[in-house]
Amino acid sequence: MPIKLKSILGLSFLLVGGCSQLHHVHIGDIDQSQGTLTPFTIKVNEFGFDAAKAAQIGAEVAKSSSTSEDLELVAFILTISNFGPKTGNPVYNDAYADEVLSEVIKACPSKKLTGLTSVREATNVGPVSGEVVRINGYCINTTQTN
């Protein structure tokens, strides 16, 4: 394949990849009987980067064949060094979602929560992404309870 065509293809993949991806969703009980509800959202995210995919794209668009071969080798080394199941792009910090529970507790002054929806999602632009854990929920406004 000519190099120019490869570059165009590579760029198109990057542009097409700029989209949102839903990986997992969990919806909890919603209690509307205790008072009015005020929505809140907790969102934590981390920079996701698929280094092997980036090297592979580099190899595809490289001008010289030796650079292309080098980058393919790099992609192979990265692939076997970062083995395992992946949801979205890999991240370099596995604790980015650790504070979710404490943040949810802090979200409501009344400490009364309901309707928690847990979403694991991502926004991708080629090998780069924002890996997101989002919790939506409602605070129960006890003062307005009948």
Partner: peptide, 13 residues
């Protein structure tokens, strides 16, 4: 060898 992947994080009340 230092990447991770968070598959899911669920909060339930």
């Amino acid at each position: 060898a230092c990447t991770s992947s968070v598959h899911m994080s669920q909060v339930d009340v």
